[in-house]
Protein backbone atom coordinates (compact mmCIF):
# COMPACT_ATOMS: atom_id res chain seq x y z
CA UNK A 1 0.00 0.00 0.00
CA UNK A 2 2.71 2.46 1.02
CA UNK A 3 4.87 1.75 -2.01
CA UNK A 4 1.87 1.93 -4.31
CA UNK A 5 0.88 5.30 -2.86
CA UNK A 6 4.42 6.53 -3.19
CA UNK A 7 4.66 5.55 -6.88
CA UNK A 8 1.27 7.09 -7.64
CA UNK A 9 2.34 10.20 -5.76
CA UNK A 10 5.59 10.33 -7.69
CA UNK A 11 3.82 9.99 -11.02
CA UNK A 12 1.34 12.74 -10.18
CA UNK A 13 4.28 14.74 -8.89
CA UNK A 14 6.02 14.12 -12.21
CA UNK A 15 3.04 15.53 -14.11
CA UNK A 16 2.88 18.53 -11.76
CA UNK A 17 6.60 19.00 -12.32
CA UNK A 18 6.08 18.96 -16.11
CA UNK A 19 3.46 21.67 -15.76
CA UNK A 20 5.42 23.67 -13.21
CA UNK A 21 8.53 23.62 -15.39
CA UNK A 22 6.63 25.39 -18.16
CA UNK A 23 5.31 27.94 -15.71
CA UNK A 24 8.69 28.54 -14.19
CA UNK A 25 10.52 28.81 -17.51
CA UNK A 26 8.26 31.64 -18.61
CA UNK A 27 8.30 33.24 -15.18
CA UNK A 28 12.08 33.18 -14.98
CA UNK A 29 12.39 35.15 -18.21
CA UNK A 30 9.36 37.44 -18.21
CA UNK A 31 8.52 37.72 -14.51
CA UNK A 32 4.83 37.00 -14.82
CA UNK A 33 2.57 34.06 -14.12
CA UNK A 34 1.42 32.80 -17.49
CA UNK A 35 -2.16 31.79 -16.79
CA UNK A 36 -2.58 30.70 -20.40
CA UNK A 37 -0.21 27.83 -19.71
CA UNK A 38 -3.03 25.66 -18.40
CA UNK A 39 -5.03 26.34 -21.52
CA UNK A 40 -2.12 25.22 -23.68
CA UNK A 41 -2.01 22.03 -21.61
CA UNK A 42 -5.73 21.56 -22.32
CA UNK A 43 -5.15 22.04 -26.05
CA UNK A 44 -2.32 19.52 -25.91
CA UNK A 45 -4.67 17.04 -24.23
CA UNK A 46 -7.29 17.52 -26.99
CA UNK A 47 -4.70 17.04 -29.72
CA UNK A 48 -3.45 13.88 -28.04
CA UNK A 49 -6.97 12.61 -27.50
CA UNK A 50 -8.14 13.14 -31.07
CA UNK A 51 -4.99 11.60 -32.50
CA UNK A 52 -5.62 8.43 -30.52
CA UNK A 53 -9.39 8.16 -30.78
CA UNK A 54 -9.92 9.40 -34.34
CA UNK A 55 -6.81 8.24 -36.07
CA UNK A 56 -6.10 5.21 -33.89
CA UNK A 57 -2.53 6.35 -33.59
CA UNK A 58 -0.18 4.92 -31.00
CA UNK A 59 0.51 6.69 -27.73
CA UNK A 60 3.92 7.71 -29.07
CA UNK A 61 2.36 9.49 -32.06
CA UNK A 62 -0.27 11.03 -29.82
CA UNK A 63 2.37 12.36 -27.43
CA UNK A 64 4.47 13.66 -30.30
CA UNK A 65 1.45 15.35 -31.87
CA UNK A 66 0.50 16.94 -28.55
CA UNK A 67 4.05 18.17 -28.03
CA UNK A 68 4.32 19.74 -31.48
CA UNK A 69 0.75 21.10 -31.43
CA UNK A 70 1.01 22.61 -27.96
CA UNK A 71 4.39 24.11 -28.80
CA UNK A 72 2.88 25.77 -31.87
CA UNK A 73 -0.02 27.12 -29.83
CA UNK A 74 2.39 28.43 -27.20
CA UNK A 75 4.45 30.14 -29.89
CA UNK A 76 1.32 31.72 -31.40
CA UNK A 77 0.27 32.78 -27.92
CA UNK A 78 3.52 34.61 -27.23
CA UNK A 79 3.95 36.15 -30.67
CA UNK A 80 0.39 37.44 -30.97
CA UNK A 81 -0.42 38.33 -27.37
CA UNK A 82 2.76 38.99 -25.40
CA UNK A 83 5.51 40.17 -27.78
CA UNK A 84 3.60 43.31 -28.83
CA UNK A 85 3.31 44.22 -25.13
CA UNK A 86 6.91 43.35 -24.37
CA UNK A 87 8.11 45.52 -27.24
CA UNK A 88 6.22 48.41 -25.67
CA UNK A 89 7.95 47.67 -22.36
CA UNK A 90 4.71 46.78 -20.60
CA UNK A 91 5.11 45.85 -16.92
CA UNK A 92 4.67 42.16 -16.00
CA UNK A 93 1.24 42.80 -14.50
CA UNK A 94 -0.14 43.65 -17.96
CA UNK A 95 1.25 40.42 -19.32
CA UNK A 96 -0.39 38.45 -16.53
CA UNK A 97 -3.77 40.01 -17.21
CA UNK A 98 -3.33 39.39 -20.93
CA UNK A 99 -2.56 35.74 -20.18
CA UNK A 100 -5.87 35.47 -18.33
CA UNK A 101 -7.61 36.92 -21.37
CA UNK A 102 -5.85 34.48 -23.68
CA UNK A 103 -6.89 31.65 -21.41
CA UNK A 104 -10.57 32.66 -21.41
CA UNK A 105 -10.50 33.21 -25.17
CA UNK A 106 -9.00 29.81 -25.96
CA UNK A 107 -11.26 27.97 -23.55
CA UNK A 108 -14.31 29.47 -25.16
CA UNK A 109 -12.95 28.73 -28.61
CA UNK A 110 -12.88 25.08 -27.55
CA UNK A 111 -16.46 25.32 -26.24
CA UNK A 112 -17.56 26.78 -29.58
CA UNK A 113 -15.69 24.39 -31.85
CA UNK A 114 -15.34 21.10 -29.98
CA UNK A 115 -18.04 21.49 -27.38
CA UNK A 116 -18.21 20.98 -23.66
CA UNK A 117 -18.13 17.19 -23.68
CA UNK A 118 -15.89 15.31 -21.34
CA UNK A 119 -13.73 12.87 -23.27
CA UNK A 120 -11.82 10.04 -21.79
CA UNK A 121 -8.83 8.47 -23.47
CA UNK A 122 -9.27 4.92 -24.73
CA UNK A 123 -8.17 2.49 -22.03
CA UNK A 124 -4.57 2.02 -23.05
CA UNK A 125 -2.86 1.71 -19.74
CA UNK A 126 -5.46 2.18 -17.13
CA UNK A 127 -6.19 -1.42 -16.35
CA UNK A 128 -2.78 -2.89 -16.75
CA UNK A 129 -0.47 -2.96 -13.82
CA UNK A 130 2.82 -4.48 -12.84
CA UNK A 131 3.78 -6.19 -9.62
CA UNK A 132 6.57 -4.49 -7.79
CA UNK A 133 7.69 -5.77 -4.39
CA UNK A 134 4.21 -7.12 -3.78
CA UNK A 135 2.38 -3.90 -4.70
CA UNK A 136 0.29 -3.45 -7.81
CA UNK A 137 1.51 -0.39 -9.67
CA UNK A 138 -0.34 0.97 -12.66
CA UNK A 139 1.66 0.97 -15.87
CA UNK A 140 0.47 4.47 -16.63
CA UNK A 141 1.86 5.80 -13.35
CA UNK A 142 5.16 4.13 -14.04
CA UNK A 143 5.27 5.36 -17.63
CA UNK A 144 4.33 8.92 -16.65
CA UNK A 145 6.97 8.91 -13.96
CA UNK A 146 9.73 7.67 -16.25
CA UNK A 147 8.72 9.89 -19.15
CA UNK A 148 8.53 13.01 -16.96
CA UNK A 149 11.94 12.20 -15.58
CA UNK A 150 13.42 11.80 -19.06
CA UNK A 151 11.79 14.99 -20.37
CA UNK A 152 12.95 17.08 -17.44
CA UNK A 153 16.48 15.66 -17.63
CA UNK A 154 16.50 16.51 -21.32
CA UNK A 155 15.50 20.07 -20.52
CA UNK A 156 18.21 20.26 -17.90
CA UNK A 157 20.81 19.13 -20.43
CA UNK A 158 19.55 21.65 -22.94
CA UNK A 159 19.74 24.48 -20.43
CA UNK A 160 23.21 23.61 -19.18
CA UNK A 161 24.98 22.24 -22.25
CA UNK A 162 23.85 24.34 -25.20
CA UNK A 163 24.51 27.92 -26.17
CA UNK A 164 20.81 28.79 -26.33
CA UNK A 165 20.18 27.08 -22.99
CA UNK A 166 22.96 29.06 -21.34
CA UNK A 167 21.56 32.22 -22.91
CA UNK A 168 18.13 31.42 -21.45
CA UNK A 169 19.61 31.07 -17.98
CA UNK A 170 21.62 34.25 -18.49
CA UNK A 171 18.56 36.17 -19.68
CA UNK A 172 16.58 34.94 -16.69
CA UNK A 173 19.08 36.86 -14.57
CA UNK A 174 19.59 39.93 -16.74
CA UNK A 175 17.76 40.30 -20.02
CA UNK A 176 19.31 43.64 -20.97
CA UNK A 177 22.86 42.39 -20.63
CA UNK A 178 21.98 39.25 -22.58
CA UNK A 179 20.93 41.49 -25.46
CA UNK A 180 24.31 43.28 -25.16
CA UNK A 181 25.86 39.87 -25.70
CA UNK A 182 23.97 39.66 -28.98
CA UNK A 183 21.02 37.55 -27.88
CA UNK A 184 17.89 38.39 -29.87
CA UNK A 185 15.42 38.62 -27.01
CA UNK A 186 12.28 38.03 -29.05
CA UNK A 187 13.77 34.88 -30.50
CA UNK A 188 14.85 33.68 -27.07
CA UNK A 189 11.36 34.28 -25.69
CA UNK A 190 10.00 32.27 -28.62
CA UNK A 191 12.30 29.36 -27.77
CA UNK A 192 11.21 29.51 -24.12
CA UNK A 193 7.55 29.33 -25.11
CA UNK A 194 8.19 26.45 -27.50
CA UNK A 195 9.82 24.55 -24.63
CA UNK A 196 7.03 25.43 -22.21
CA UNK A 197 4.47 24.42 -24.85
CA UNK A 198 6.19 21.09 -25.49
CA UNK A 199 6.08 20.32 -21.77
CA UNK A 200 2.46 21.42 -21.67
CA UNK A 201 1.71 18.93 -24.44
CA UNK A 202 3.24 16.05 -22.49
CA UNK A 203 1.46 17.07 -19.29
CA UNK A 204 -1.82 17.44 -21.17
CA UNK A 205 -1.73 13.90 -22.56
CA UNK A 206 -0.87 12.38 -19.18
CA UNK A 207 -3.53 14.41 -17.40
CA UNK A 208 -6.05 13.43 -20.05
CA UNK A 209 -5.24 9.75 -19.68
CA UNK A 210 -5.31 9.95 -15.89
CA UNK A 211 -8.47 12.01 -15.60
CA UNK A 212 -10.55 13.39 -18.48
CA UNK A 213 -10.25 15.85 -21.36
CA UNK A 214 -12.52 18.90 -21.06
CA UNK A 215 -12.29 22.63 -21.80
CA UNK A 216 -11.52 23.80 -18.26
CA UNK A 217 -9.07 21.04 -17.41
CA UNK A 218 -6.29 23.62 -17.68
CA UNK A 219 -7.19 25.04 -14.31
CA UNK A 220 -5.53 22.05 -12.73
CA UNK A 221 -2.40 24.08 -13.39
CA UNK A 222 -3.25 25.90 -10.20
CA UNK A 223 -1.55 22.81 -8.77
CA UNK A 224 1.46 23.45 -10.95
CA UNK A 225 1.43 27.01 -9.71
CA UNK A 226 1.42 25.73 -6.13
CA UNK A 227 4.30 23.43 -7.02
CA UNK A 228 6.21 26.33 -8.53
CA UNK A 229 5.57 28.50 -5.46
CA UNK A 230 6.70 25.75 -3.11
CA UNK A 231 9.87 25.22 -5.12
CA UNK A 232 10.45 28.93 -5.71
CA UNK A 233 8.92 30.67 -8.72
CA UNK A 234 11.32 30.96 -11.59
CA UNK A 235 13.62 28.21 -10.37
CA UNK A 236 13.55 25.08 -12.52
CA UNK A 237 14.95 22.63 -9.96
CA UNK A 238 12.51 24.26 -7.56
CA UNK A 239 9.59 23.54 -9.88
CA UNK A 240 10.57 19.89 -10.13
CA UNK A 241 11.09 19.48 -6.39
CA UNK A 242 7.89 21.40 -5.61
CA UNK A 243 5.90 19.27 -8.08
CA UNK A 244 7.17 16.00 -6.69
CA UNK A 245 6.65 17.07 -3.07
CA UNK A 246 3.12 18.24 -3.81
CA UNK A 247 2.24 15.09 -5.75
CA UNK A 248 3.46 12.77 -3.01
CA UNK A 249 1.90 14.71 -0.13
CA UNK A 250 -1.43 14.99 -1.95
CA UNK A 251 -1.57 11.31 -2.72
CA UNK A 252 -0.74 10.39 0.86
CA UNK A 253 -3.37 12.78 2.16
CA UNK A 254 -6.04 11.33 -0.11
CA UNK A 255 -5.10 7.73 0.65
CA UNK A 256 -4.49 7.95 4.37
CA UNK A 257 -6.82 10.79 5.39
CA UNK A 258 -9.47 11.59 2.81
CA UNK A 259 -9.53 12.48 -0.85
CA UNK A 260 -12.05 15.23 -0.07
CA UNK A 261 -9.52 17.14 1.95
CA UNK A 262 -6.79 16.84 -0.70
CA UNK A 263 -7.23 20.25 -2.33
CA UNK A 264 -7.82 21.95 1.00
CA UNK A 265 -4.49 20.53 2.02
CA UNK A 266 -2.68 21.72 -1.13
CA UNK A 267 -3.95 25.26 -0.91
CA UNK A 268 -3.23 25.42 2.82
CA UNK A 269 0.28 24.29 2.02
CA UNK A 270 0.83 27.18 -0.39
CA UNK A 271 -0.48 29.66 2.19
CA UNK A 272 1.91 28.26 4.77
CA UNK A 273 4.75 28.56 2.29
CA UNK A 274 3.83 32.11 1.35
CA UNK A 275 3.84 33.09 5.02
CA UNK A 276 6.95 31.28 6.14
CA UNK A 277 9.07 30.90 3.00
CA UNK A 278 7.71 33.35 0.43
CA UNK A 279 10.60 32.70 -1.94
CA UNK A 280 9.95 28.95 -1.89
CA UNK A 281 12.54 26.29 -1.32
CA UNK A 282 14.97 27.38 -4.03
CA UNK A 283 13.74 30.81 -5.12
CA UNK A 284 16.14 33.66 -4.62
CA UNK A 285 14.77 36.77 -6.12
CA UNK A 286 11.67 38.32 -4.70
CA UNK A 287 11.55 41.77 -6.22
CA UNK A 288 8.94 42.64 -8.82
CA UNK A 289 7.18 39.31 -8.75
CA UNK A 290 3.57 39.36 -9.85
Amino acid sequence: MFLQTLITGLSIGGIYALMAVGYSLVFSILNFSNFAHGTIIMLGAYIGYFLISWFYSSLAISLLGAIVGAAIFALLNVSLAYIPLINRKAPPLYLMITSMGVSIFLENMVYVTVGSHFYSFPEIFKKSSVSFFGSEISTLDLFALIFSFIAISGLHLFLTRTKMGTAIRAASYDMTVASLNGVNMNRLIGVVFILAGAFAGIAGVFLGIKYMVYPTMGWITSKAYIAAVIGGLGSLPGAVIGGVILGILETFVSVYISSVIRDVFSFSLVIIFLVILPAGLLGKYLEEKV
Binding site: K163, R169, A170, S172, Y173, T176, V177, G182
Partner: peptide
Protein backbone atom coordinates in the same frame (compact mmCIF):
# COMPACT_ATOMS: atom_id res chain seq x y z
CA UNK B 1 26.20 43.19 -14.43
CA UNK B 2 27.54 39.63 -14.50
CA UNK B 3 25.08 36.75 -14.55
CA UNK B 4 25.35 35.79 -10.89
CA UNK B 5 23.53 32.50 -11.52
CA UNK B 6 26.09 31.36 -14.10
CA UNK B 7 29.63 30.20 -13.56
CA UNK B 8 32.53 32.48 -14.39
CA UNK B 9 33.32 30.41 -17.46
CA UNK B 10 29.71 30.50 -18.67
CA UNK B 11 29.67 34.26 -18.16
CA UNK B 12 32.77 34.70 -20.30
CA UNK B 13 31.48 32.30 -22.97
CA UNK B 14 28.22 34.28 -23.14
CA UNK B 15 30.30 37.02 -24.71
CA UNK B 16 30.89 34.67 -27.64
CA UNK B 17 27.17 34.06 -28.18
CA UNK B 18 27.23 35.32 -31.75
Amino acid sequence: RLYANLTVRENIIMGAFL
